[in-house]
Every structure is written in structure tokens, then in C-alpha cells.
Design a binder for these strands. Sequence first.
DNA 1: GGAGATTAGTAAGATAGTATTACTAACAAT
DNA 2: ATTGTTAGTAATACTATCTTACTAATCTCC
Lengths: 396, 396
Amino acid sequence: MAESSGSGLLRLLNGQRIVDALFAAHPSRMSRAGIARATGLSKPTVSALVADFESAGLLRVSEESPSSGTIGRPAALYELVTSARHSVVADIGATKVLVGVSDLFGELVAEHEFTTGPDARTTLDHLAETSTELLRGIAGGCQAVCVGVPGIYRPERDRVEQALNLPGFDDLALSAWLSERFKATIYVENDVNLAALGELASIRDEQTDSDFAAISVGTGIGMGMVVGGDLYRGGTGSAGELGSLLLSAPQSGTTALTLEDVASAPSICKRFGRAIEKGLHSKLDANADVPEIFAAAAAGDEAVSWVLDEAAAAMALAVSHLCLIADPIQIMFGGGVGANPVFVKAVERRLSKLVAAPPKLTASTLGRKAALIGAVSISLRLIHESLVVEMLGDQP
Amino acid sequence: MAESSGSGLLRLLNGQRIVDALFAAHPSRMSRAGIARATGLSKPTVSALVADFESAGLLRVSEESPSSGTIGRPAALYELVTSARHSVVADIGATKVLVGVSDLFGELVAEHEFTTGPDARTTLDHLAETSTELLRGIAGGCQAVCVGVPGIYRPERDRVEQALNLPGFDDLALSAWLSERFKATIYVENDVNLAALGELASIRDEQTDSDFAAISVGTGIGMGMVVGGDLYRGGTGSAGELGSLLLSAPQSGTTALTLEDVASAPSICKRFGRAIEKGLHSKLDANADVPEIFAAAAAGDEAVSWVLDEAAAAMALAVSHLCLIADPIQIMFGGGVGANPVFVKAVERRLSKLVAAPPKLTASTLGRKAALIGAVSISLRLIHESLVVEMLGDQP
DNA sequence: GGAGATTAGTAAGATAGTATTACTAACAAT
DNA sequence: ATTGTTAGTAATACTATCTTACTAATCTCC
């Protein structure tokens, strides 16, 4: 075990700096002299630590192109070993489950998809089988597991709540269950939150980490927020329940409409049907589905544009609240309704009339895989946290 | 200067652990043997560091009660020197400026209040004079300055924006200005945000750090949020602008009411006047002020209860949005309207009908001093960050 | 082809800080 | 007075670092 105060701590800290420098430089490789320059450590110190990392299997000398064209003695270029750590990532959706195995850099080296089972337990059994199958042939197994669930996960009780689409979560200690099957760090998170992380990870090049929101508009409406690079969960873990947001104050007697009553996929279909009954003109059938409705939007269909306008107006109002309260820099829309650029444009148009400096609104580009990619980004963090300690600690 | 990789770093880290242990134990004093037990460091290491801290003036042997009643050799008990560091804190309000000097533990050792001048520059000059006056007799001057301003502070431009009540901020580089006058770390922050920190600090015993909101309802309506112990500012620094929140979607042609149109102090007075004109019954004059209106609320005055109900309903709707988006654990109301328990109770009653699990709502107990106390908590953080480095770095 | 320049990496010794062990100091209880 | 307990110090060893000086390997220029 690593000491926490003596010079062993110093070794860990300096080891972390070296690993950080190598991750920052990825995919370029670095010589030990280069690492010394980048970290400020002395060359002998770097050599000693790199030797330890190499014998622990985290680093190796790159085979190809042993430098060329430069003056001076050619360097031995080191690179991180991609396969030094693996993690299992999964997104348990209402209809499908995505499973993957990610390497040290978050590349998915194996993937699989299966249909969600009748209840949570069967689905999880299937998930466990699939992941051991995907891990076959990977030496060392996995060191981290991150699972997205279609409900609110409460770490203090180790329970998934409000997973309405998938029964059987009520008395299932999910983290404990996973710990029994995987000898790894376990992380469970709401799928919408993971999707927010995933969407952010996919645009991080052009964008700062801070204050990003991803709104999913499909069967239900949910939101994940990333604040300063970390997920924001709120005091009771239920931040971002946008669907229940009231569109106006309830008058005495009447119950007010919620955002979900107007802008979710089922509501849009229902309201379209009612618009037809009320006599609005449309080429479509009264029970058209969301893709059909969106397809007809371009053609200037009367009932369609009325329904979509209402949905966009409601969403714009909700987003205006979000801007005044949380002031995100960018908002990304996903889900069956939200990922449609027509919808995003309509919201954007209306939002500009409600808010002085509206944030950037974009449509999701990742689709279903957003949560899985978010799970990768969490599992990477878990692995990075323990990497150096484990690599340097095992030497006697 | 302290090395960042060599053994000097280790010394700093261990020094920090000792100081942290002493702060955590405050106001009890600790023996060196006790520090060694608490930190896991060895006794000689603790002795060496404590000796350095003592000669730097951060620690001293407590005079009184050199231990008694216990078995064994009596310990020399060490305590932090309260006056080792001082900070200047100020809250520049629209009508008054509060200035104080705080010691190492955040106790205010000097305080002063003066009327806000005609413009920012005059007020700041007055502030600088006052604080040098308050610092007279304090050896070493101040090491940190935290100033609350009635507007949005943008660090990247070093400007205070939207300070509508106090002209002259537009082309004033406030941090730079303060840096010229104080040889100390400077921090400028919105006053509502500081008030949130202050209110949180005053209840921290019973409450976790996380996800606390303070809503100020007075001339305007603003909110400060604390997330995980840190202020939340949003992407452009303007999170918490609750006053502009729309109470309903604007219909074509009409502009919708904002929260400030219904629940701010001026709006309440205006709407009360109109209620009288409309013929609602009241004992009060049509141009009654907020304290009078609240005083009449208990008596069941018709016009008064109509106006306050409307204000509370609007605030409850806004708070319901806040809960669904940010899910705070506790919300504290301050300001001329908000600090009134009658108002808070009314909001609470209405909120319970809008949200399934409403957070705890409370009325501010700090009043005007909230922002000043928040400034103290920021300045303490600034001082703690640099304390050990400065204390151990100055020895050759 | 050889001398010099240039960069990578290693070896040896110095330095700083910590932990361990064993000691002395100071007091209470018996 | 003796014994036991706790606080603190002294001496030494250990760990990990840095510095300095060296060797190694290549390119360039003559």
C-alpha cells in the first residue's frame, strides 16, 4: 500500500505527472527527455519512473519510426499501452441495451446490442453474460464498469427509482449486484445524464467544459447538465426533471399543462389527432407518428405546423427558465423529437424572443450511442484515478 | 519559491495537513503528539514543521491551562494565531456600504458602514479610506480583499455590468483598481451570490454544503446558488436572474408578465394601489409601502391578501421550475419582501401543490449582513489557499 | 571519412525530508 | 521513592529527488 505522507507519496505524484503528460500528448509518443521537459522533473527521475511503468505494463517503447530527421541521438519514444486497462460500459434503455468494452483511451474495442428483457433482473443477467463474452480474450479483464439506467439512481440506498419502463428495479441493489460479478470499480448513473456527458465529450474540441445541458425529448422529457466537467445531480439526485415543468400557474380548480403534456412524442401525436378532429387541414392520417409528422412539416401542413409550434413554444419557455436559472453555454437536444433539426430551429426562433442572449442550441449527432459514450467518459475517469497508484504500488 | 516536484512539495503538503488538523480542531488546541496522531505524520516531522510555523508567527503555545488532570507528561498545547492573517471584506449596496476586517477564523475584528456615494468611483474611494482606517493598528495589513458589488462581475473583462443602481462602473477595472490599493489577493463577486454563501455559512452546522439557493426579493429579484460548496455562476456569469423569469408563455401581441412584475417590492406596492382602485377592500392607503402591507396581512385585509397571494403564487411557480431544473436541498429567502416569514409561508403552501417533494424553504436570518459574511467566507478560502506556502516559503 | 555539434540517456554523489528507534523529560499514582 | 504514562528530542537510516558530469548515438559540415 502506498504511504500517504512519506516520500512514497512524492513518487506517486510525480508518476501521475508523467502519465498525465503522456495522456495529454496522445497520440504522439514522448522520449524520457521530452517528459522531463514537459513535467519539470529531472531526467534520472523520469527514467526511474518510466522504467517502473514499463515493467508494470503501462508504457512501452514504440516500435515504428524510431525518430528521424532530427539532430542528435535518436530518442526511445514511449507510448501508453492501449490495452493496459479496460472497462465495461452499458446503456440499459427501455427497448435496447448497448454494451461495450473500452480501452485505456476510451476506444470501444468490442460492442454488442440486445433487446431489453421483460424485467431488470433478466436484463442484467443478459448484460453480465454479454460482457463476459465481450471480455473474452482480453487479458486482465476489466477495471471499471459504468452502467446507464433508465431511472434515478440513489447511491446512498443503492437503488434505481422511477424506472417506469423496466420493472424489477425496486429491490435490486445494483452496485452490489455488479460488484459481485465484476472485480472492478462500479458506477451507475441515469441514462440522460450519461447522454449529456457523451454529447459533451463529442464536441469538446470546440467547446469549453462548463455548463452544458442536454435535453432529451422522446417518450418523456429529461435533461442532464454538466457543470465544470462534472455531472450535476442536484440535492436529491433528481435535477433535470424538465418533463414536469409547468407551462403556467395552475388556476383554481384546473391543473396546468406540463412540458411533457405538449412536447413529448406521445403528446405530439395525441395533439395532432385532436387538431385533425378540430378540423385543421392535413394530408396525414389522424394517428400519424412523429417521423411522419416531422416529414410533413416542411410541406407547410396546417395541423402539423400548429402542433409543432405549440411544442416548440412550450420547450422555448422551459429553456428560457433554464437560461435564467442555470445559464448554460450550449444546449443539445436529443431523442426522437429533440434530435430533429426542424424542432431545434423552431425552439431557437421562439427562444430568441424570450431571452436576451440565448445560448447555442444544437441537435444531437450521437443518437442512441450518446449514453454509451458518456459511460465511457465516466469509466475513463475512474480508471485514471487509480491508474498510477496501482501501477507503482505493486512493486515490492 | 517552493519547488513543485522535489521534497519541498512534500514539506508543503505535510504542513498543510498540520494546519488543516489545527483548523478542524479549533477552538481546541493540540499538542505536537496529538497532531502526529491526527495526521499520521511522525513526531519529529511534526515538531520540525510546528517549529517553523511558530517562528513564522502562525502558531503559538497556548498560555492558559497547560493541561491538567491527565496522566503523563503535560503537553505544550499549540493554537493558531488568530491575528496571523487579516482580510478586508465589503458589500457595496445600492444605498449602504458595509466594510469589515476579518481575522484568520473569519471573526470580524472591525466594522464600519457608510452611505453609498453618488457614483462608483466616489464610493470606492470612500471604501479604500475606510478600510485603511480599519486596518490601522493591525500588523501586517491584509492579505485578502473580497468585495461584493450590486451587478454582474465579469472577471475576463474586469468589469461590473448591469449595476443599475450605482453609475460609473462601466469603464472601471475594479480588480485592477483594488490591486493598486491593497497588496493582497483580490476577489470581486455579485452581492446576491455572496449573500447565498453567507446564509449557507450561517447554517452550515445542520446542513450539507450542497445545492443551496438564496433568493433575494426586494427592489429586484435575484438568486445565488451554491453547488458543492462553490458558487455557481453559469456559463456567462448570469445564472440566477430569476427576476426576468416569465410566468407564462407570451401570446401573440401581448408581452407576458415576469416574476419581478408581480413579486418585487415596487410591483407589490403598485399592484396594491391598483387593487384598491379596482375596489378591493382595505384599511390601508392606496400608496402603502411593503412593511405596512405585510403588517396588514395578519389582519385578513382583502386587497393585501390578494396582492400577496399573487406574489406568492408567482414565486412558487418560479421555485417549482428551480426545483425541477436544479433540485436544491434548501432555499432561503432574503430581502425586504423575501425575509418576511409570512411571504415564505405563503410560497411554501403553494409550492407543496406544485412539486412532489418540495425543498426546505426558510426566511433569511442575517438580513443586510449576509453578503458581508459571504465575503468573509470567500476571503477565508483565499487565505487558506496561500497560508502554508507563504509561511513555509519565507525561510531561507 | 573524421571532427564537432546536438540531443538522449546513465552514473555517482549531494540534498532534503521523512520514519524508526531509542532516549530523556515531566508529571500522576501508589 | 518507585513505577507507569505520555510528551518531546536525538541519532540514524531510508527514500526519492536533483545536480553534475559523463557516455551514447546520430547529424552536419568540412
